[in-house]
Nucleic acid binder design. Structure first.
Lengths: 210, 210
DNA sequence: GGAATTTTACCCCATATGGGCGATTTACGG
DNA sequence: CCGTAAATCGCCCATATGGGGTAAAATTCC
């Protein structure tokens, strides 16, 4: 442990040119080390977990095993290491699959070197660097997209159902007849276009109704 | 529409000193306008929706109606407007309630003026400015925290259940006896500490098991 | 002030569900 | 080589669920 601690970075990227350029930029910057690069997830899995690497730059669209699968496999083996995805893809599926797989950063490939280095520092400081529109995608995923088709009463009942209550319990809880509760539930199913409790709850959670 | 388009910013903040300081900083910077400030959500709701405001800085801990409720009420009335929360609170509940309410940015109050202005520009450009550790909190919320207690088979069955299938349908789908399916489901319930389909699905989604 | 929505309430009935109990086979690790 | 976990199949039974009706207050909205 020296006074000026370098950040140890590794790269997983199949394109030799990009890989070497990135490595040169990073390794050539004071405060950063980049002595290990891999051209595939398969190779990275063999060696990376043994190395004292703090930040991994991971390409998403790799031939063979994808970068997403790479993070999924590697992150549990080195939980202290931060993975930043580096990609041209910005579709929702790729973004959220990457994040769910364990990535803590997500940068588009045209990120200028200065920002890339800044992002590496930021992730080490406990941040989660993302390109602007990626961050927006992530935030938007929390927003309620469609207005709830359910009435307040129905929403209330659906919440209780999701806690495992049956007609009777719900009825007692909100001082109604079990018959009435049943009617509400039937209406809920109609409005959500489902015909079972399971589907209703899944849809309600997905659409952030409860 | 002039060549140099100013960003119109409004502030909702109860502390007069902070409110005025922020307004002065923003309005005093080229490219920014801040002609409207409010000391409460109640007052903002009356006037803000009529104003051509692009970015609202919203304090979270306001007396009376909270900033979170403020966003929830105001955002639907002005969907094109971006709301940035400005607060000292960083607990998960406050952060996620704010974002779910419709905020697109979340900055801690000690953010230096230059970064605040940068964030306002960024949110206008389609980003989602967040203080570093807030961004990390958001990203972490996507990560699988606990290892799944369910076997592959059980996970597969639970997914089918969440699609509204019953014993028989699941059994046919994966070429098993309905009895076996039932046994698996019983085991799933045990492992998840629940005793109904509804609870199981809720917990599975919450814990990202399916 | 009237229409629409929400909330309340009840009936019948076929089927699904969940709990309890037992059993065999396969696969993997100590 | 043995033990454990997972996956497979089965039976009994009380209760819950979902679909089909019908209908009348209460509330909200225009």
């Amino acid at each position: 442990m020296t006074i000026t601690e370098n950040i140890h970075v590794a790269i997983v990227e199949d394109d030799p040119e990009i890989r070497q350029t990135l490595a040169l930029i990073i390794d050539g910057t004071p405060g950063f080390w980049c002595k290990h690069t891999f051209e595939s997830v398969e190779l990275a899995i063999r060696q990376l977990p043994e190395l004292p690497i703090q930040v991994v730059l991971m390409d998403v669209e790799l031939p063979g095993v994808s970068g997403i699968m790479g993070v999924k496999k590697l992150k549990p083996l080195m939980p202290e290491t931060d993975f930043i995805m580096l990609t041209i893809r910005q579709d929702d599926e790729t973004v959220f699959n990457s994040i769910c797989a364990g990535a803590t950063g997500y940068l588009v490939k045209d990120t200028p070197p200065s920002e890339l280095l800044e992002s590496i520092k930021e992730v080490r400081k406990g941040g989660a660097p993302m390109s602007a529109n990626i961050a927006r995608q992530v935030i938007l995923s929390f927003h309620q997209t469609t207005p709830s088709p359910l009435s307040d009463r129905e929403t209330e009942i659906l919440k209780l159902l999701s806690q495992g209550m049956n007609y009777r319990s719900v009825a007692e809880k909100i001082y109604l007849s079990p018959h009435t509760v049943k009617t509400h539930i039937k209406n809920i199913y109609q409005k959500l276009h489902v015909n079972s409790r399971a589907e209703a709850i899944k849809k309600a959670i997905k659409d952030k109704l409860i």
